[in-house]
């Protein structure tokens, strides 16, 4: 693990990536956004479904016991 060294002298060089920064960071940024939204979509969908079911259940039991 001793050969694992940070390849850039400072943060600015890390961001600039010798002029390739725009490409590298945009690729990583867009991918991160897309992957995150893909992962969160089913979570949100499940939560919505559960909420809808809960309200429907409440409605039904409310009708059942007048």
């Amino acid at each position: 693990m001793s050969d694992l060294v940070f390849q850039f002298p400072n943060v600015n060089a890390f961001l600039a990536m010798n002029g390739h920064g725009v490409y590298v960071w945009s690729a990583y940024g867009i991918s991160a956004l897309v992957l995150l939204s893909v992962a969160l979509a089913p979570v949100r969908r499940r939560r919505k479904l559960l909420a809808a079911m809960a309200s429907r259940l409440k409605h039904e039991t409310g009708n059942g016991t007048p």
């Binding site: 060294v5 940070f6 390849q7 850039f8 890390f14 990536m17 590298v24 690729a27």
Partner: peptide, 28 residues
């Protein structure tokens, strides 16, 4: 993996730093 690929993997001799996109492109 992303931090390793972005900061710690050596620079490619021919392509420079742009090759670091490989760490997303190939797995995807």
């Amino acid at each position: 993996g992303a931090i390793w690929g972005l900061g710690f993997a050596p620079e490619d001799a021919r392509q420079g730093n742009s090759y670091r996109i490989i760490y997303i492109h190939v797995p995807v």
